[in-house]
C-alpha cells in the first residue's frame, strides 16, 4: 500500500512529462521512466514475474525501439510543436477530460470494498497454464510474432537500388 501511494504519483508525473515534453527524445525517455516505474509497481504488488517481463520487453525493447526510431528520423519539430500548442491543447482536453471524469466517477461510485486479495503469482503455475489452458493463445501469439518479425524485417529493409 505504501509502495502504491509512493509510486502512483511518480508514474502520473512521468507519464505527464512523456505526453507534454516538446522535445521528442525527452518524451521517449520519460516513457521509458514511466514504464519502468510501472514495472516496479507490479513488483511491489506481488506480480514479480510480470514486473520483470515488463522491464525486459517494455523498457528493453519497446521504449528503446521508440527512442531509436527518434534517433533515426531526427525530428526537429520542437518549435513547431510549441507553436501549435494553443490550437491543439483545447480540443485535446475537450476530448480527454470528459472521458477522465467519467472514468473517475465510475471508479468512485461503483467500486465494491476491496477484499484483502492474494499477492501470490507462482511462475510454475503460469507456465502450466500457458501450455495447457492457454495453449491455443500461445500458438496464436507465436504465429503473430513470427509474422511481425518477418514483416518488420521486410518493411525496414533498404529498398534495392538499381545500378
Amino acid at each position: 500500500m505504501t509502495a502504491l501511494l509512493i509510486l502512483s504519483p511518480l508514474i502520473m508525473l512521468a507519464a505527464l512529462g512523456a505526453v507534454w515534453k516538446a522535445r521528442p527524445v525527452h518524451a521517449g525517455l520519460l516513457l521509458a521512466l514511466t514504464l519502468s516505474l510501472a514495472g516496479m509497481l507490479y513488483i511491489a504488488l506481488g506480480a514479480e514475474f510480470l514486473g520483470l517481463v515488463q522491464f525486459m520487453v517494455y523498457v528493453g525493447a519497446v521504449a528503446v525501439l521508440i527512442v531509436f526510431a527518434l534517433l533515426i528520423t531526427r525530428p526537429r519539430d520542437e518549435i513547431e510543436e510549441i507553436a501549435r500548442r494553443p490550437k491543439s491543447v483545447g480540443p485535446g482536453l475537450l476530448c480527454t477530460l470528459p472521458l477522465l471524469a467519467t472514468l473517475l466517477y465510475t471508479v468512485d461510485r461503483t467500486l465494491p470494498e476491496a477484499p484483502p486479495g492474494t499477492a501470490d503469482l507462482p511462475v510454475r503455475r503460469i507456465g502450466e497454464l500457458l501450455f495447457t489452458t492457454h495453449a491455443p493463445a500461445v500458438l496464436a501469439v507465436a504465429i503473430l510474432l513470427t509474422a511481425v518479425m518477418l514483416g518488420a524485417a521486410l518493411f525496414a529493409r533498404e529498398p534495392s537500388k538499381k545500378p
Binding site: 508514474i11 502520473m12 507519464a15 505527464l16 512523456a18 505526453v19 521528442p24 521517449g28 514511466t34 521508440i66 526510431a69 527518434l70 528520423t73 525530428p75 519539430d77 513547431e80 510543436e81 501549435r84 491543439s88 491543447v89 480540443p91 485535446g92 482536453l93 476530448c95 480527454t96 477530460l97 472521458l99 477522465l100 472514468l103
Partner: peptide, 17 residues
C-alpha cells in the same frame, strides 16, 4: 489518468512516433 494522458498524446501530437 494514464489512459487519459495516452489519449491526449494520441490526439494532440503530430509526430507519429
Amino acid at each position: 489518468v494514464l489512459f487519459a494522458l495516452g489519449l491526449f498524446a494520441v490526439l494532440t501530437r503530430r509526430n507519429t512516433i
